[in-house]
Amino acid sequence: MPVLGWATLYCLKWLGLGALAPDTMAGYYNASAYWVSYRDGFVRRGLPGAVLEGILGHPPGVMAASVVAALLVVLVLAALVLLTAAAVRATPDAQDRLVVAALVLASPFTFTLAVINRGRYDAVVVVCVAVIVLLASRRTLPLMRVLGISLAVVAGAGSLEISLAFLAPLALLAVLPLGRTPVQRIGCGAIAVLPGLALAVVSLAVHPSVGMLITMMERESATGFPLSRSEENSISALGQTTGDALAHTVGISPWTILFCALVLGGCYVLTASLLWARLGHPRRYWALALMSLYALAALGLSAVGDDYRRWWGFAFVAMVASLVLLRRGAVTIPAPRHAEPPRRRLVAAALLVSAAMALFPIWPTWDQPATGASIDQIQQH
Rank of each mutant, 00 (worst) to 15 (best):
M1F: 10
P2I: 12
P2M: 10
V3Y: 04
W6R: 08
G16T: 12
L20E: 15
D23P: 07
T24H: 00
A26V: 02
Y29V: 13
Y29G: 03
A33N: 02
W35K: 00
W35S: 01
G46Y: 04
G54I: 02
I55P: 05
L56Y: 12
G61C: 12
V62T: 12
M63N: 07
A64G: 04
A65P: 04
A65R: 01
S66M: 14
V67Y: 03
V74P: 03
L75Y: 03
V76Q: 09
A79Q: 10
V81N: 14
V81T: 09
A85Y: 14
A85N: 12
R89E: 06
L98N: 13
V99I: 11
V99M: 13
A101Y: 00
V104F: 14
L105N: 02
A106R: 03
V115P: 00
G119T: 04
V124P: 02
V126Y: 03
V127T: 12
I132D: 00
I132H: 03
V133I: 07
L134K: 11
L135N: 00
L135W: 00
A136F: 03
R138N: 08
R139P: 06
R139N: 06
R145K: 13
S150E: 07
S150I: 12
A152C: 12
A155V: 03
G158V: 14
E161V: 06
A168Y: 02
V175D: 01
V175R: 01
L178P: 00
G179I: 03
P182H: 06
V183I: 08
Q184P: 09
C188G: 02
V193C: 11
G196K: 04
L197W: 05
S203I: 14
L204V: 10
P208I: 06
L213K: 05
M216Y: 10
G224C: 09
L227R: 10
N233S: 02
A247P: 09
V250N: 05
L262P: 10
G265R: 05
Y268V: 03
T271L: 01
L275Q: 04
R284E: 09
Y285E: 13
A289W: 07
A289G: 13
M291A: 15
L296R: 01
A298G: 12
L301M: 11
A303L: 15
G305R: 11
G305V: 08
D307T: 07
R310F: 07
W311F: 15
W311H: 11
W312C: 08
G313E: 06
F316I: 13
A318Q: 01
A318N: 02
M319H: 03
V320Q: 00
S322V: 03
L323R: 07
V324M: 01
L325W: 02
L326A: 10
G329K: 14
P336L: 08
R337F: 07
R337A: 15
H338N: 05
A339T: 11
A339N: 05
P341H: 10
P342G: 08
L346N: 02
A349G: 11
S354N: 15
S354E: 13
S354K: 07
A356K: 04
M357Q: 04
M357C: 13
P361H: 08
I362A: 05
W366Q: 15
W366E: 11
A370C: 09
A373I: 04
A373H: 13
D376K: 06
Q379D: 05
